[in-house]
Design a binder for these strands. Structure first.
Lengths: 235, 235
DNA sequence: AAATTTTGTTTGAGCGCTCAATAAAACTTT
DNA sequence: AAAGTTTTATTGAGCGCTCAAACAAAATTT
């Protein structure tokens, strides 16, 4: 009796699709051992991020990743179908860490809008987020984002809620101001942060994390004269 | 009688140097084929920038460049020693265009410091500089900058004079302010511009050139209340 | 000015290599 | 033993780069 369940690779219009195919009526869905699989995936993603940070995206290969993880190349392809899948997974994970950082920072302060604003800003300059390795990863992906739509999708997924959080905090802080003015200020803050990230990435020796955070807060103090005293106390 | 003036190419420590050498007192201008060489180099660099803007840096190969230029791969290696040399040349050329743009903008306005400041800012948002193709090229290189020291050298070569120009203009604008305060404001302006570039690069649909230029100028108006009326008139 | 030599330019085939991906075999867990 | 996991070996495409030879222009000689 031939009762097997095989994995078949088929080429459809140039796109490789892998599907579980039933050879006999009998069903038995192929299941991976989830615990182990998740561990491996995480291990491979961490290795990928490390390789990007130390070798750059251009020189990151399945070999460098596998080597960093202490595994074989084959296992990388086994858990992520392709190199692109692995890289997208790594970018997603990197953004997830960013998201976790600012949401956690928000949750650690009370309901005071100014505290929230400061928390959001300082989260972006925290050592966990704003370090050369982490920034290298982001800029590596952003450099290729226009040519790899998958990266853009991941970016949008995480950037939108983050921008909304900043806007919401600014609304709380300036309840009587017109909506557009508030949006403008929120936008300036995030844009300035992006600029600082770029400068820290390109000139880590001259532009430093802590000084940048301070300068960003000083800028906010100028934008919000009503809160400048409280801000000055925090700077 | 041998009366010629020759152009001699000498290899000094791997760097090609061309110098005019006088063989006898008598002169006879010998143009050689330098004109052709420069034309070819320019042709190849333009093809490289185009390829980076349309294919990305990762998928830019000697083949894509040669194809774009309508030449053979061999000639690309002939004029630039290596692919890296070609890419560095392209980055240098790209920065040279940036330099030419802001210096020209400065030269077109009078001696009024505020006019100069506006000219500097608007130059960074001019269509010639601040368009998706151009930004793609920069971000492509910046993504790899930490792993290709040659790129960093080129960046520094052009970034330093640009930062100095902004600082000098700010000093003229605020002659009585302390130096560090002036430096801080100049820094904020350039950092904000970097941030806008990033946003335009990553979200060209939602973040637009002209609006960003306007917002940048509005921010400057807030930073320089003494000049806000004149700035408002320009916005 | 024609012929010849020298020098600079361009081509295209192809070498050596690296890479992602595949396949098969070996091993581990259930 | 079956299912799941991992390693090892192999494949084939594509890469940067080399090089010999063809070609073109300029310099020199005749």
């Amino acid at each position: 009796m031939i009762a097997t369940l095989g994995i078949v690779n088929i080429q459809i219009m140039g796109i490789k699709v892998s599907m579980t195919q039933q050879i006999t009526p009998q069903q038995k869905p192929r299941k991976e051992r989830k615990e182990n699989a998740d561990r491996r995936r995480q291990q491979l993603i961490q290795a990928t991020l490390k390789s990007i940070a130390t070798n750059g995206l251009a020189k990151t290969t399945l070999a460098t990743v596998a080597n960093e993880a202490g595994l074989s190349q084959g296992v990388a392809v086994f858990y992520f179908k392709s190199k692109t899948g692995l890289l997208s997974g790594a970018l997603h994970d990197h953004y997830a860490g960013y998201l976790a950082n600012w949401t956690e920072a928000l949750s650690k302060v009370g309901n005071d809008p100014l505290d929230k604003l400061i928390a959001l800003i300082e989260a972006d300059f925290s050592p966990k987020i704003c370090n050369p390795e982490s920034l290298s990863v982001w800029f590596a992906f952003w450099g290729e984002q226009k040519f790899t739509p998958q990266y853009a999708e991941v970016s949008a997924e995480f950037d939108i809620p983050r921008a909304k959080a900043m806007y919401d905090v600014c609304v709380e802080l300036m309840p009587d101001e017109p909506q557009e003015k508030v949006a403008q200020i929120a936008d300036w803050i995030d844009t300035l942060t992006d600029g600082y990230w770029q400068r820290i990435h390109l000139s880590p020796k001259t532009v430093r994390r802590k000084a940048s955070a301070r300068e960003a807060l000083e800028m906010v103090a100028r934008l919000l004269p009503e809160h400048s005293e409280r801000l000055a106390a925090r700077i």
